Simulated assay, not measured.
Amino acid sequence: MYLHIHCFVFFNFRMEAPGEKTHTCGTICLKYLLFLFNILFWLAGGAVLAVGVWTLVVKSDYISLLNSSFYSASAYILIAAGVVVIVTGIIGCCATLKEMKSLLIVYLSLLLCIFLLELIAGVLAFITYQELDEELRQNLKVTMQQKYQQPGEESVTQAVDKLQQEFKCCGSHNYSDWTDSVWIQTNDQLVPDSCCKTPTDLCGLRDHPSNIYRVEGGCIVKLEEFLLSQLYILGAVGIGIAFLQLVGMMFTCCLYRNLEEDPY
């Protein structure tokens, strides 16, 4: 009984001072919860920004192997989304601390817009991945055969070598894809040196299983797995931020209603 009375008094207690706004403790608690949410939202924006930069900088070598701009575009979208989330979080903090109802409406609208854009982006990403996967299967072999070690195609050569070494594979579908390579036909090697388990100069003269990688499905399977893992990362980040946004919209609506009801 005592605890019930104590809680009732606590949540309905009003701190009054001449010339100051008076709020119930419920409104004050909402303000701090929304402020805490904005801190988390701001950190989430930083995480999205970091993932976008990491995707663009660390894994950008493979962009030259894709005719589609999906990979680089997704990285730029992540960077832009991170900046928007950070700015939205700052607006939310200002609206919460200064109790500006008009700014709260702007903040709520931004949260809703970002949430809807995330849903649209998720659907488009899934559809685009299916198209990218088919395009990858059709074009990777031709790209490796016609552009590897050719003048002006240094980025492709670097990407192919990194792909074969990092994923421990050789050729698009298997090592025999290199037989029709423009570069191989003008050299004595059977495969590039990057196909070797222990890369050394001219190690590609031998295509014995003890010397080169013979992964089932070749590099195409490995690259597909990599792109799919990137999609999972984007999806996980998006779901996490979407959940935060739903919580933030709920807190914002409650705070706005309480500010409307609280006497000044």
Rank of each mutant, 00 (worst) to 15 (best):
Q149E: 12
W183E: 03
G171W: 00
P151W: 07
T179Y: 13
E134K: 14
P151C: 06
G171Y: 03
N174D: 13
I127T: 09
W183F: 10
D133A: 11
K162E: 13
Q130I: 10
A159N: 02
L140M: 11
Y129I: 04
I127E: 12
V182A: 15
R137G: 12
E135N: 13
E135T: 02
Q189D: 10
L190A: 07
E154Y: 03
V160I: 15
T157I: 03
K141D: 12
L163K: 02
K168Q: 11
K162S: 10
T179R: 15
L136M: 12
Y148I: 00
N187P: 00
K141P: 02
D177W: 00
Q164Y: 06
I127D: 09
Q158M: 12
Q149L: 08
L163V: 02
Q146W: 01
E134N: 11
C169F: 02
Q185F: 06
H173N: 14
L132S: 06
C170K: 02
V160Q: 06
I184T: 04
Q130T: 07
D177V: 01
L190R: 05
Q185C: 01
S155R: 09
T157A: 08
Q164I: 06
L140V: 01
Q146S: 13
Q145F: 05
T157W: 03
T128D: 12
T186K: 12
Q189F: 07
L132F: 04
P151Y: 07
Q165S: 13
E154D: 12
Q165R: 11
M144A: 11
